[in-house]
Structure formats: C-alpha cells, structure tokens
C-alpha cells in the first residue's frame, strides 16, 4: 500500500505537486494519470525518498522510504530505464543493487530470466535498445521481490510485444496481491491494464476511482428519426437533454436507449437508428484534464 497525505512539492514559486492525497491499495493495478508536467514523476520521486516534500508525507506500507532498512524488499521501482552506466553489464548493474539489500546472487539470475535478458546479462547496458533497457529496469524493480511496485511510464517506446508483456506482468503482480502503481500520460495505455485510476493535473488530484466509474459518465444515445424536431421536444418534456446532431440525428443525454425506444413506440415515431455511445476513457480523461494541461494546444 502506498499512501500520500497532503503531499506538496514547491520549487520556488512553482508548485509541482499540490496537496496530493490518495491511497494505492494492494492487489490492484492503479494507473497514475496526468498530462505531461502534471507532477506524476515528482510525486513518485517523493515516494522513493529522492525528493524531499515541501509538506505532507508519502509512505510505503506505513513507513517513509528513508525509514526502510532494506528498501528493495519493500518497494521496487523504475523511474528512468536509461539510467544505467553504459559501460556496466546488465548483470553487474543488478548485482550491485542486489548487494545493497543483501539479496543473493541467485536472485539476479532469477529476475534476468523473468524479463528474458539472461542471454544479454554479460553485455554492456550502453548497447541496449530501449526495449532491453526497459526490461532491465523492470528486472531491477523485481529484484527484492517487493510487495509494492512503482513504475514510471514503463511502456514508453516499447514495441507492441513489449507492451503486451508489461501489461501481462503487471496484472500478474497485482493478482499476487502486490500494490502496483504505474504512471502514464496516455489513458489508452492504462485503460487495458489498470483496475483503478488516479488522475492528477497541475499537481492536484482531479479524480480517482475504479476504472468503470470513468466510462459510466457521459454516455449519449444517438437517435435518427425523420421527425427530429418534434421528437426532440417530446424527449425534453420527458426530462432528457437533447442536442441536434445534424440532419435527422439527435444526441440524447440523461435517458437510456430502451427508454428512448419505448417513448418513440408510444408516440408512433419512426426511428432509423438508436445507439448507445459510451464516451471512451480517452475522452473522459481529456474532459477531466482539459483545464490542467500545462501547455495545451489552442481550442
């Protein structure tokens, strides 16, 4: 479990993370979403004890990172997969990390195997592709067999096979009862993996909840009928909110498709089309973060 409580980070006048409080429960994959510059990485760095909070606390299984005696056994992390000395082999990189936490050498071989890098263990990390670096980063995160995992944009720059691999891995880790927090600036990336979402913008919490809660909102019913104008008035009288969709199309909000269909039958209105259209997660995300985008394009 990861707990943030009033977590704040200021750099001079600029507030990177602003009074952020949320809990990341075990057994689930939690997507940590926000536009670029929203403060995701800064928040993660504070969880890992790399940056000192201006105010508030971040705890991992109830303790601040600097209180952990063997941190890798509690929280595994990947912030920047490219942060490996280019002359150091993958094996030596993992070996020194394992040594800091008194982990056996056998564990290094195990995680190399898990991420499929056993063959490349003796190669220098400088020659690794981005995909291999990401796998090495994941291996480092898994070293201490930690109950909590923190991954910053783990699928960035991966090929489809690598993306699928990471998704499967994260789901598996959560299924084992681990806490998994994975950040991304793209909703579509986490939509397929995450059980929960925490969305931030400009350092502040915008929304959080089960992933289903984000798709539930904003469903429209699309109706096409030759009597559009008259039927729109009838729908409004029944409490629905109706926008003209152009031509014979109506976009109905606040009434389910079956109710629209029943009303049409009762009124004897001919329908050409009756469709429920869920707002995609991507649209929900855009809607939520519209005001929080650091450098948005003009609308």
């Amino acid at each position: 479990m990861i707990q943030l409580s009033g977590l704040t980070k200021r750099y001079g006048d600029k507030v990177a993370v602003d009074d952020l409080s949320f809990t990341v429960p075990p057994g689930l994959v939690t997507g940590f979403l926000g536009p670029n510059g929203a403060g995701k990485t800064t928040a993660m760095r504070m969880i890992l004890g790399l940056d000192v909070p201006t105010a508030g606390t971040a705890t991992v299984n109830g303790r601040a990172h600097h209180e952990l005696v063997r941190p890798l056994r509690v929280i595994g992390s990947m912030l920047d997969a490219r942060a490996v000395h280019p002359q150091r082999t993958a094996y030596k990189h993992l070996l020194y990390l394992a040594q800091t936490n008194g982990l056996p050498v056998s564990r290094v071989h195990e995680v190399l195997d898990v991420v499929g890098l056993s063959e490349a263990a003796g190669r220098k990390a400088g020659g690794f592709s981005l995909g291999m670096s990401q796998r090495l980063g994941i291996a480092a995160a898994l070293l201490g067999d930690p109950p909590v995992l923190l991954l910053d944009e783990p699928v960035n720059g991966l090929d489809p096979e690598g993306v699928l691999w990471i998704r499967t891995l994260m789901r598996g880790l959560a299924a084992e009862g681990r806490t998994v927090l994975v950040s991304s600036h793209l909703m579509s990336e986490v939509a397929l993996t995450a059980d929960r979402l925490v969305i931030i913008g400009k350092g502040r919490l915008i929304a959080q909840g089960e992933i289903g809660e984000f798709t539930g909102t904003g469903a429209d019913v699309v109706v096409r009928t030759p009597d559009a104008a008259a039927f729109a008035r009838r729908l409004e009288l029944s409490g629905a909110h109706v926008r003209p969709g152009g031509g014979d199309e109506l976009l109905v909000h606040g009434m389910s498709a079956p109710d629209v269909g029943r009303l049409a039958a009762a009124e004897g209105v001919t329908l050409y089309e009756l469709t429920t259209r869920h707002a995609s997660l991507e649209e929900a995300f855009m809607e939520l973060t519209r005001d929080a985008v650091e450098y948005g394009s003009a609308r």
Binding site: R45, L48, G49, L50, H65, H66, L68, V69, R70, P71, L72, I75, S77, L79, D80, R82, A83, V84, H85, P86, H93, Y96, L97, T100, N101, A140
Partner: peptide, 19 residues
C-alpha cells in the same frame, strides 16, 4: 560523479535508502 553522469544515483539511493 560516475553515478551522476549515468543517472544511476537515483537507483542507488532508492536501493540503499538512508543517504
């Protein structure tokens, strides 16, 4: 400095914990 240059200082600190 080799840790600052390559960026491994973050990984090292996250692993060791107490500075």
């Amino acid at each position: 400095s080799s840790e600052y240059g390559s960026g491994t200082m973050h990984a090292s600190l996250a692993a060791v914990g107490r500075r």
